[in-house]
Simulated scan of single mutants.
Amino acid sequence: MNLDSDNFLNQYWKYYLTLEAEFIELEKIIPIDPVNKNTFSLKYLELVFSICSEIDVVFKQLLLFNGYNGNPKDWDMPDYMRFIKENCNKFTQEKVIYNNKRESSPYSEWSENKNLTWWTKYNLGKHHRTDEKEGLENYKRINQEIVLLSLSGLYQLELYLFAYITKENSNEEDLRVPAPPSKILEMKNWKHNRIFISDNTILE
């Protein structure tokens, strides 16, 4: 099945919004604040597992959409980084803004051919959960900061996939922000032709 805007919204964006909603619920209990950046919980662990699993899914779809060679089952982070560096010049410099004030660049380490710190901690938490380093178990390294970075990374990736899809259709060329929009995240300097009055009201 060809991936168009409607398929994207139903298959990927709705799930992103579900994960974001879970994050917002946790935020009510543990506010996003520098003093809480190292706070961990089993809920954070569960959420990061879901977010990063979806990142892998969406990256595979992005590569498939662009005709990347090989078997998707074999693709992993080195393939994703290679594709991004060859095809998306601004990707590693993009900034995701949380609640209009806090900026992050989830993929900036790729500009120096380094592994993503938040992805590495996710993998350690997933595959070596109770191993210790410097007296701290790996699952405790999946903290508030890692959750926010991984969610920002998924958000950025979703917007890039949506941009590729809408670019394929000349009638949607500038519709680079899905609706309804994120409640907490936006891309800095991300140009589009939508103004959201509310989740269900859009000026184009």
Rank of each mutant, 00 (worst) to 15 (best):
M187W: 06
L62K: 09
Y15A: 01
A21I: 02
L124V: 01
N38T: 15
Y139L: 07
N115D: 13
Y139K: 01
K60D: 00
A179V: 09
F49E: 07
I29N: 07
T166V: 15
K133L: 07
E54F: 14
N138C: 06
L47V: 06
E172F: 08
E186F: 10
K37N: 08
E134F: 10
D56C: 08
K183V: 04
E86P: 00
P181H: 07
L159N: 06
T130W: 14
E46A: 11
I24Q: 13
L3W: 09
E134W: 10
E54L: 08
F83E: 03
K133R: 11
N189L: 13
L157K: 04
E172W: 06
E112K: 15
K37F: 09
Y12F: 14
N87G: 11
L64I: 10
R141V: 08
N171K: 03
E186C: 13
I30K: 03
L17N: 02
L63C: 04
I24W: 10
E168C: 05
L47G: 01
N189V: 06
L3N: 00
V96N: 00
N71P: 00
F40D: 09
K43W: 05
D131T: 12
G135E: 00
E134M: 09
E137R: 11
S41P: 05
Q61A: 05
N66A: 04
T130G: 07
E27A: 12
M1V: 08
Q144A: 03
L157D: 03
K167Q: 07
C88F: 15
